[in-house]
Nucleic acid binder design. Structure first.
Length: 471
DNA sequence: TACCCGGAAGTTCC
DNA sequence: AGGAACTTCCGGGT
């Protein structure tokens, strides 16, 4: 499966950001709702259209339609279309509904529909603001510069992690930017040799060599994108992988790749979440090897799982695209993040805006999914009996402690907070609003110690051992 | 004003 | 059908 580097429509800092989704995972998500002036929402995809194909699908001839369909087959690894069913011009093609397309090409209707929608939308935008023609060469032409193209990079965002060589970046792209493959780490792939592996390594995304080879040929070079998405420098303390700070990009990447190949074998099974869970989505953005999303979200301390949402609105839009909730905003997305508090996947870093901390490593999270969620109920009374520990969010390490197996992992209200059941329990046992708030606080506070423990490299290794035992 | 919090109800997908 | 994982909306606090 090839990856199309879809471009986000511009918004602040949205320019030229390829979304991390494979076509089949993403394309249905379009069309996009916000339409500030171009750059094109189709971006690279549009630019990769066959030369000579008009940018406006509705102007296509029958022959153009065939060319387009053939291109889609190749580009998106779609099953071959029955061209007899597409004896129509572009205008007619665009009138087909998703269902229509699905009937004509089972399994690819959504993709086709959404590609068309994007093209139509893009053509409309181009109509308003004439821009570069849709040619293979147009791709290399950068979009009009925007003052928002490169939002401020957090000072903590690193300086040892140099730009990848363009070929390497391109090679890394398929896995790094596709939400289909496993999330940051896979339970079956990584822990075996991971006893001494740090959190960093566990979070590092896969860069299988075979994928590189497979992808580098048919796709365009990313050299131009690399220039656009050159990752910000990283702090030397950032990770063992990057320290001491390498002088050579190729060496850097080689090391990186070597590490990943060790922990992410090529036969790694696919994720069971496909980036459709918010935590997984965030992890994938955070761990993008080419660091293209650091303008949106970036590790603040990868070892402890602390990250910062650099561009809340932008990130929310990305998430909205991912989930096809195009009115997504930070308020809504943050609500989803807050639901993670109760299941101890996340916590807020007190006093720092847009700063959160993962409380579970990806292996854990994935394992939880794999074992059908250990639905350990954490009763309010039980929680309330636990000591309250207020912990300042520093990168302090606590004693090693195994993963709390009693952690609720069910995001539903009922699982962790039974009073939220609509069929309410005995009223005598219902906490008051104040109590509820306190309990929630207790849940969060009480687990802080553990969280910071879990995210220390030592305990992460310990968790891995635990994972290993489970396997 | 923006961020943050959590309740409540609704939606979508599996 | 039912549950999980959000999404949407909201009132309140900082």
């Amino acid at each position: 499966m090839k990856v199309v580097s879809l471009q986000l429509p511009s918004g602040p800092s949205m320019e030229r950001l390829p979304l991390p989704f494979s076509p089949t995972e993403l394309l249905w998500r379009y069309p996009l709702p916000w339409a500030p002036p171009p750059p094109s929402p189709l971006g690279d995809t549009k630019a990769q259209l066959p030369a000579g194909l008009p940018p406006e699908p509705r102007l296509w001839t029958r022959e153009d339609v065939v060319v387009f369909l053939k291109w889609c087959e190749r580009e998106f690894d779609l099953p071959n279309f029955d061209m007899d069913l597409f004896q129509m011009n572009g205008k007619a093609l665009c009138l087909l509904t998703k269902t229509d397309l699905g009937e004509r090409c089972p399994g690819a209707g959504d993709v086709l529909h959404n590609v068309l929608q994007m093209l139509v939308r893009d053509a409309a935008l181009l109509g308003r603001v004439p821009s570069s023609p849709v040619t293979p060469t147009a791709r290399a032409a950068p979009y009009p510069p925007s003052p928002h193209s490169h939002p401020p990079t957090p000072t903590w965002a690193v300086d040892g992690f140099h730009h990848f060589h363009s070929a390497a970046a391109a090679a890394a792209q398929p896995n790094s930017v596709t939400l289909s493959p496993a999330p940051s780490v896979d339970s079956s792939g990584s822990p075996q040799r991971g006893e001494s592996m740090s959190y960093v390594t566990a979070y590092a995304p896969p860069v299988p060599a075979t994928t590189q080879a497979a992808s580098s040929g048919s796709n365009h070079s990313d050299s131009d994108e690399e220039a656009q998405f050159a990752p910000p420098p990283r702090s030397p303390k950032e990770t063992p992988l990057t320290s001491p700070a390498p002088q050579n990009h190729t060496t850097q990447h080689g090391h990186y790749r070597t590490q990943h190949r060790e922990f992410f074998p090529n036969d790694m099974p696919e994720s069971n979440t496909n980036g459709r869970l918010l935590w997984d989505f965030l992890q994938q953005l955070l761990n993008d090897p080419t660091q293209r999303y650091t303008n949106y979200i970036a590790w603040k301390n990868r070892d402890t799982g602390v990250f910062k949402i650099v561009d809340p609105a932008g990130l929310a839009k990305l998430w909205g695209i991912q989930k096809n909730h195009l009115s997504m905003n930070y308020d809504k997305m943050s609500r989803a993040l807050r639901y993670y508090y109760r299941v101890n996947i996340l916590r807020k870093v007190q006093g720092e805006r847009h700063c959160y901390q993962f409380l579970r490593n990806p292996t854990e999270l994935k394992n939880i999914k794999n074992i059908s969620l250990l639905r350990q109920q954490m009763s309010p009374t039980r929680v309330a009996q636990q000591p309250v520990v207020k912990s300042e969010m520093k990168e302090e390490r606590c004693d090693d402690e195994p993963v709390d197996e009693d952690m609720p992992t069910d995001l539903s209200m009922a699982a962790s907070e039974p009073w939220r059941k609509r069929a309410r329990p005995d009223p005598a046992n219902i906490p008051s609003q104040h109590d509820k708030h306190r309990i929630s606080t207790l849940i969060g506070d009480n687990l802080i110690l553990k969280r910071e423990t879990d995210y220390s490299a030592e305990s992460y290794a310990l968790n891995l051992r635990s994972d290993k035992c489970e396997q």
